[in-house]
């Protein structure tokens, strides 16, 4: 059943509408578990659109396996997605920095409030992101340090390549996932791919994780795929590599999602005017390359790659990143 969570009339002809699709068993029971799948917070992140489509398609194909409520929110920033804008087009506000919002606030806060209130009551929320147009990511789960222990068992089911904790949660205080966690809705953030495109392999990988999670929660009784054993990053395992110079980034033979050695040449920053190589981008350690620069124009400080040391897969510590905080 499609419901309108927010409906605001716009000046000429149309409404701004945030919709969700509620999927539930034909004969709904009492005390059914409920999961919310949210995406489209940033208008340039599209993998979640494909995830929603495939998720609903599979549930509709096998409604007999649905034992709980699945609320799908494909686009909580519909104008952003429609215009290819990361933020809210009218004011460039980042939708993921205005939660939990207020009922009487300006538009973004009002929308955030309505969405937050609608999701509260869910037993789990998965917030699906797709990096941005600058950076490509392998499917990964990012957890806040405050909820790390509680959420790690669920994160492990998400079929991600890597799980890591953000060390600077200050930047994410006003994010949807953080606010929902504060309101008692366990929420995990999935990142994958790059902005403005769909990477179907990553989206399918995440979809398998969602079904595995739903199975665990008792929302899905159908068969599910075996999920990957993720790398769980330890303190100090993740290193971010930043551009030391401004210029044009040229990727060498690096491929995301593979193990590389210390000294591996990921790429170089060059000057298109002088023909000079300004900087070589070199891996500082052996490890798993899970973040890679996608957009070639870089300013000093731009994140070029992240590498996670592999080996012991301890389960409880945080990945303390030297530089290069990640955002969702």
């Amino acid at each position: 059943m499609i419901e309108e969570i927010v409906s605001l009339q716009m000046p000429v002809e149309e409404r701004l509408v945030v919709r969700k699709n509620r999927l539930e068993p034909e004969h709904a029971g009492k005390n059914m578990k409920r999961i919310s799948i949210v995406t489209g917070t940033h208008g340039d992140e599209l993998n979640g659109q494909y995830v929603c489509y495939k998720l609903i398609e599979k549930i509709k194909a096998h409604p007999e396996h649905l034992c709980g409520i699945v609320d799908v929110y494909p686009s909580i920033n519909p104008l952003g997605i429609d215009t290819g804008s990361r933020g809210i087009p009218m004011n460039d506000l980042d939708m993921n920095r205005v939660f939990p919002g207020t009922d009487s606030g300006a538009m973004a806060e009002h929308i955030a409030y309505k969405i937050t209130q609608d999701i509260i009551g869910s037993d789990m929320c998965v917030d699906v992101h797709s990096s941005n147009i600058f950076i490509k990511e392998v499917p990964q789960v990012r957890l806040s340090p405050e909820n790390y222990d509680k959420l790690l068992p669920y994160a492990r089911l998400m079929n991600a390549d890597i799980i890591w904790a953000l060390s600077a949660s200050v930047y994410l205080e006003a994010s949807l996932a953080n606010c929902l966690n504060m309101f008692g809705v366990p929420s995990i953030v999935v990142e994958m791919g790059a902005g403005s495109r769909i990477t179907r392999t990553y989206a399918r990988q995440t979809l398998d994780g969602i079904f595995r999670l739903m199975k665990e929660l008792g929302i899905w009784s159908g068969s599910v795929e075996e999920v990957k054993e993720p790398i769980v990053a330890n303190t100090g395992d993740v290193s971010a590599i930043h551009a030391g110079r401004s210029g044009l980034f040229i990727l060498e033979d690096a491929e995301i999602g593979v193990n590389i050695q210390k000294g591996f040449k990921i790429g170089k920053i060059v000057s298109p005017l002088t023909g000079d190589v300004l900087e070589e981008i070199i891996s500082p350690k052996d490890g798993f390359l899970f973040t890679l620069r996608e957009h070639p124009v870089v300013y000093k400080g731009a994140i070029m790659a992240r590498v996670c040391k592999t080996g012991d897969r301890a389960e409880t510590a945080f990945a303390s990143v030297k530089g290069g905080e990640a955002y969702v």
């Binding site: 990361r86 933020g87 460039d92 980042d94 920095r97 941005n132 600058f134 600077a168 971010a240 930043h242 124009v297 300013y299 000093k300 400080g301 731009a302 994140i303 030297k322 530089g323 290069g324 905080e325």
Partner: peptide, 27 residues
């Protein structure tokens, strides 16, 4: 433009910043 032109990020949402962070965090 209102925000940092390349990635549309708001410097006034990047404090206290990070000296080894992304471009606007460094700024």
């Amino acid at each position: 433009r209102r925000f940092w032109p390349l990635d549309d990020s708001d410097i006034n949402r990047k404090f206290p910043g990070h000296i080894a962070g992304d471009t606007t965090q460094q700024i």
